[in-house]
């Protein structure tokens, strides 16, 4: 039980507990803020997995971008004056049973599958340099395509959202 393990359990608990709150609270705003903690937890997990750049990206994009977007969405689609921003639920019982079974199945699958673990020979200090090199060599095409995709998403989201002219 070293620091690594402690940190893992810490982040794992943060992640799962906040995720559990995310999917169970009725208040949408609460969910959004618990989601913030979930993302933080996941970012910490990334760090533990030697993906420091990814952790930063996780915080920047998810927390700084997506989460803000979601909050905007929540606020735009609910009357602010109505303090009780709640959401209804459906399929609670069958969903609970199904998800319980699914979770059990997945967890047991993860545990009992004989994973071939082959640790990296050496773990580099930082991943930024390698990631950057890969992005503009092996994954250049995908990189460019993602750029275009983002542009399209930007324009598309804008045009969809302001379709109130007619």
């Amino acid at each position: 039980m070293n620091y690594y393990d402690i940190l893992f359990y810490l982040f794992a608990i943060i992640t799962l507990v906040s995720a559990g709150f995310v999917v169970t609270t009725r208040n949408v705003i609460y969910s959004a803020f618990f989601l913030l903690f979930t993302f933080f937890g996941v970012a910490g997990i990334y760090v533990l997995l030697a993906a420091d750049f990814l952790a930063v990206v996780q915080i920047m994009v998810y927390v700084g971008g997506i989460l803000i977007l979601l909050l905007f969405g929540v606020m735009l689609t609910n009357k602010i004056t109505n303090v009780d921003i709640r959401t209804g639920t459906s399929n609670l019982l069958p969903a609970s049973i199904a998800i319980g079974l699914l979770m059990g199945a997945l967890v047991s699958a993860m545990i009992y599958t004989g994973w071939k673990v082959q640790p990296a020979s050496e773990i580099p200090d930082t991943s930024i340099k390698n990631l950057g090199a890969l992005l503009i060599t092996d994954y250049l095409l995908i990189f460019e395509l993602l750029g275009i995709l983002l542009l399209i998403a930007l324009i598309g989201a804008a045009s969809i959202a302001r379709r109130d002219k007619e």
Binding site: S90, N91, A95, A98, L102, A105
Partner: peptide, 11 residues
């Protein structure tokens, strides 16, 4: 609801 079915099916 469909997703629930899908989950059942996966199980």
């Amino acid at each position: 609801t469909y997703i629930v079915y899908v989950v059942f099916a996966v199980i």
